[in-house]
Design a protein around this nucleic acid. Structure first.
Ligand SMILES: [Mn+2]
Ligand SMILES: [Mn+2]
Ligand SMILES: [Zn+2]
Ligand SMILES: [Zn+2]
Lengths: 137, 137
DNA sequence: TCTTAATTGCAACTCGTTTGCATGTATCAC
DNA sequence: GTGATACATGCAAACGAGTTGCAATTAAGA
């Protein structure tokens, strides 16, 4: 929560109940959540927050660098907290949709190569795996 | 076009003008196209095909394994032909949206590791880079 | 406590994608 | 070639994720 307050302050933004609650939901989740997921979990916890506010808050948290946006071939975005978590990637089951973390990243060296080859400046990358979990195989 | 015919036949599907035209558009493009892109290019070539048909055809071509679906953080899908092209990845500029191919894949070894660690069977992966191209830097 | 700008909720909207259904046509048996 | 038939298409409507406008609310600082 410390990071949240600092980040908000730095931009003249405010610490509100929805923002705390949304970050809290993300920190408790073991896998990245969609806006609708976050909204559903807030409702379950009796925290009344509009879905629009969830979207706006996820945007703010992303800008502040507190959450990462993840795309897993679903036609929607998911979000996960970055606080206290290493940079990592995911694998998603084509059967049940289960998502697991992959606490690894083989791309440090490759990034330099990509920058040399393309003349782009690399700012970020996404690496996701898709397959079948043991139950769905 | 040979592959297309074979693929369609194998499933009791038909070879139609829209399907040929759409595959043709994809084969001519140097970067992956959205459904709307494909539709616009068809119109420019005076080929009258409904956008819905573009979506349905892209779905069929994907099922047949003739095109790959790519997600580049835009909130939409892009498609590119797989015919005669090696498995590869992309980099997209955060300024102008330019997309370049990265004709490389460092993930053969890693896939085996991922399968061992997660007990998933890996079927596919996505690896995309985001950054700034020389003009936008 | 008061002021003010940031934030929220609600409704309406945009945009990418999908679905239902009547019409059109590629394919195949004759 | 003709006809029968299942597959494909176009159009309209629906859907779902995400965005925007605006009036009402509230956090933050004086
Ligand atoms: Mn994760
Ligand atoms: Mn490509
Ligand atoms: Zn990485
Ligand atoms: Zn690869």
């Amino acid at each position: 929560m410390k990071h949240l307050i600092a980040g908000l302050r730095a931009e003249g933004r405010r610490l509100t109940r929805p923002r705390k609650a949304i970050l809290d939901v993300l920190e408790k989740s073991k896998y990245p959540l969609s806006a609708a997921d976050v909204h559903a979990r807030l409702k379950r916890e009796q925290v009344a927050v509009d879905l629009v506010t969830v979207y706006r808050t996820l945007g703010v948290l992303k800008e502040l660098g507190l959450v990462a946006q993840v795309e897993l071939g679903e036609g929607q975005f998911r979000y996960e907290t970055r606080h206290g978590r290493e940079h990592h990637h995911h694998i998603r089951c084509r059967g049940c949709g289960r998502i697991a973390d992959l606490m690894l990243c083989p791309l440090k060296k490759l990034t330099a190569l990509v920058e040399r080859e393309t003349r782009f400046t690399v700012e970020e990358h996404s690496l996701e795996f898709f397959g079948w979990c043991p139950k769905c195989r």
